[in-house]
Design a protein around this nucleic acid. Sequence first.
DNA 1: CGTTATATTGAAGTGCGTCAAAAAGTGTGG
DNA 2: CCACACTTTTTGACGCACTTCAATATAACG
Lengths: 239, 239
Amino acid sequence: MIERLLRKLAARDDISPEEEATLTDLITDVEDVPARKTVIRKGERLNRSILLLDGLMCRYKDLRNGRRQITALHVPGDFLDLHGFTLKQLDHDVMSLAPSRVAYASHEKLTRLTETHPHLTRMLWFSTNLDAAMHREWELTLGQRNGSARAAHLLCELRERLDIVGMLSGNDFDLPINQTEMGECIGLTVVHTNRVLRELREEGAATFAKGRVIIQDLEKLKSWAEFDPSYLYLGREPC
Amino acid sequence: MIERLLRKLAARDDISPEEEATLTDLITDVEDVPARKTVIRKGERLNRSILLLDGLMCRYKDLRNGRRQITALHVPGDFLDLHGFTLKQLDHDVMSLAPSRVAYASHEKLTRLTETHPHLTRMLWFSTNLDAAMHREWELTLGQRNGSARAAHLLCELRERLDIVGMLSGNDFDLPINQTEMGECIGLTVVHTNRVLRELREEGAATFAKGRVIIQDLEKLKSWAEFDPSYLYLGREPC
DNA sequence: CGTTATATTGAAGTGCGTCAAAAAGTGTGG
DNA sequence: CCACACTTTTTGACGCACTTCAATATAACG
């Protein structure tokens, strides 16, 4: 059940069998979530955190005029609101984009984990810091990249992240969202998102259609996006 | 020396005298840093984290074309690269904007802290999660707010953060940066930053000149920015 | 097969960028 | 005190990336 989470963590640092057992014991109550369901509302009191087992989820914030910014996408293996463990409530909503499967880790058990498993605690802390690193890269995207580079960068990032959890086929992957939602990730309207996607397609870099991304020229896409994966902290590093 | 850090943490949850002593023992080697000095370079191997005692620092990422995005501003009391404790190297540079004073916490001592002080560990974890919450709000700003709202929002945020550490006078505060740097925070060119600042000034909301922010109409500024401080997690909440 | 969601295109408007120059402020040395 | 260099702010003119509004095409679906 927690294979994908383990795979992500173990890529960074060794997990002992005992730690693995602790993590397994931490995660309970598997549930299915339909597409486009809000699973956590801003300000709601939290006593557990969600591990995404399958599907696709996002976190977003919105403004009064209806404009919405998706601040993070989450793929299987992501502990999507682990930060809620210390925050106790979120400053944003969390929703599913595709039909998903989730499991829960109670904050009570997490507290106990911090008391008994310092190394595991540091690894979970790392994983929230990794989320923050992605937020920073998205700040760079939203503040400084132009439309086509924003789309290209998003595709590059997702390719790397899905690779880690074994969800690529070649360089292609499923991305079950529509262009409106992609626009909400990269700070563009649907109309313009459509146009930059056409540009990527016509230049032979990548196509996104029917919920699937097909990367035709990965090097071109990376250079277009000025993609540097160091912010994903893929290297091995004991902590 | 660590009063401002303590003040921030204690606003969230109780710190026992023993924990306070542990923190005091953690922090060593006070140093002065001149303005505009890069103190951490992207990719550099880290074995200590920086606590900002006085001054103003930032983290930034840049693109090949020279465009730069400041992803975070740090005020006194901020543990500005505590995330580096688990990341071991940063995906971005850190520099001082104003003459600053810093102190250091070795990662060795931090590791020991996670082994002996679970509650303090959770509080430090919280403080990195708070940084991430600010990143998310900046994503919303950069992706969805217009120029004047971006500037207004930045001023509102800084007012709150400086208030916590006792660095406001009334609603006014020092902000020793120029308009270029402010533009790099809010994703605008200097020229346009100058224009939105003029708008805020002419509308009687706030003025920013000579490194000082004077807020004339806080309510107007907040509503202009659509400022909701919940992402700063100012409420008391044991963790 | 009709209904609704999604993608696509066109035309026109605008917020912000770019380029260039002037004005104002700041610091240094004589 | 002024002279000078340098940084920062401010303004103007113009261009373009992206938005807005509107319509059509295409796909998805019960």
